[in-house]
Design a protein around this nucleic acid. Structure first.
Lengths: 180, 180
DNA sequence: TCGCGATATGTAAGTTTCGACATAATCACT
DNA sequence: AGTGATTATGTCGAAACTTACATATCGCGA
């Protein structure tokens, strides 16, 4: 099975969700870890169901079609568990910003400065969004290791560290771009 | 044009390369920013040439076919420059590790510890590889802003910061996983 | 000298992901 | 009363990417 399937299972492990709710969750904050459009989610849920990893029940339909609420099955939870424990491939890490920075010597200092300042702004904004989220956890020291909240908090911590590092790097670079 | 095309143009902007050399460069260190298999590179070079952004000359063939060396054209350099200056979409950031961490509450502390320790090891190793690369730059303070070397060094700095942050986060998490 | 790996370039088939299209109810605002 | 955003679920074709297949030469160690 592919990663998207496990991303969906990971969401359903915490609570039953409709396809629409899954695709909303894949935007933020799960979207900072893995993203998918709704056009991927709905087929994925069907194939997970065919594999016996999730099941659905039809509820009242607010849109043009019926609303289907999905639950994870015991088999699905086991699949998720063995995936977490399975060997992890080295991350692919595609960064369009870094690719552009590699070509920075071709453009003027002004253009370079604009690029890095825009990137810095976005990192500051996301860092602020993370800070808001962090506040909802209360005292993180009280979270039990085997709670879903602690797992979420751990990923949030990584996100915060990542944004802080990125902002610091932008400042480092901006200090080295000559002012026109 | 898509990002892969600009990644290739970025490499050719510094020096003429064969398709094979481009695919080697896309492994490391460019691979930490963007990756592609050779089966993507060769068709991409052809389509870049059709668009007039690169040109090739046939040289001696060591393999079963002719060796083609590619140069970037003036048009290609301009395309690369405007791409660097164009508005940047927010990064997609897919992290399978974070996805697994989000499901960490489902597995035993022992399994969790193994996952994070393995991840930590890989970050330490890559950090060491970066340190070796950094040493090849000599005194970074001497690099001119408009040199390809400075651009490379800037991305390397970001990579180093990223790995350091990741190792720190792994240690933070490991300290919070109960010992079995 | 025999096999193995690296060099070197490509094609073909399959999978995954994206972007656009499609539909319709409900709710808030004007 | 009408307009538009949000909720809600899906299909379809295209683009991007991966994996496997295909081929041939050179250098190196066993």
């Amino acid at each position: 099975m592919r990663t998207l399937g496990y991303a969906v299972l990971g969401l359903l492990a915490a609570e039953p969700l409709t396809g629409y709710q899954v695709s909303r969750r894949m935007a933020r904050p799960i979207g900072y870890l893995w993203t998918a459009r709704h056009s991927q989610i709905y087929p994925e849920l069907r194939s997970l169901e065919q594999a016996g990893l999730v099941r659905h029940r039809v509820e009242d339909g607010r849109g043009p079609r019926d609303t289907k609420r999905y639950w994870i099955t015991g088999k699905g939870k086991n699949a998720l568990r063995s995936w977490v424990a399975s060997p992890l491939e080295p991350p692919e890490s595609k960064s369009e910003l870094m690719l552009r920075v590699r070509a920075l010597w071709l453009v003027s200092p002004t253009v370079a400065r604009e690029l890095i300042e825009a990137a810095r702004d976005r990192h500051v904004q996301r860092r602020a969004a993370y800070a808001v989220e962090e506040a909802t956890f209360g005292d993180p020291g009280l979270l039990a290791f085997d709670s879903a909240a602690f797992s979420s908090y751990a990923t949030l911590r990584c996100g915060i560290g990542h944004e802080d590092q990125a902002v610091g790097w932008c400042d480092w670079l901006l200090a080295r771009i000559p002012r026109g």
